[in-house]
């Protein structure tokens, strides 16, 4: 401190922000991978993934007697 601080690319502040952004990127990337994984497991389990979509979907209609 006391010295005039030059604003250049390698200023501590930039390094800290780059560090923060890198972690945020990793977390978001991890989230994407996780959602993909969950989707895969749900599809493999054969779970019902369809829902109401403003039109008649025969696959959603419960058969009689069930």
């Amino acid at each position: 401190m006391g010295v005039i601080m030059a604003i250049n690319r390698d200023h501590e502040l930039h390094r800290r922000r780059a560090h923060r952004n890198m972690w945020l990127g990793l977390v978001l990337g991890g989230f994407v991978v996780l959602v993909f994984g969950i989707t895969m497991v749900k599809l493999k389990n054969g779970q019902m993934m369809e829902a109401f979509d403003h039109t008649v979907r025969p696959s959603l209609v419960v058969e009689q007697g069930k």
Binding site: L34, G37, I38, V41, K42, N45
Partner: peptide, 11 residues
């Protein structure tokens, strides 16, 4: 529970 779903739920 499938291990991945268990992990994700706890997360």
């Amino acid at each position: 529970v499938h291990p991945l779903l268990a992990f994700a739920s706890i997360l």
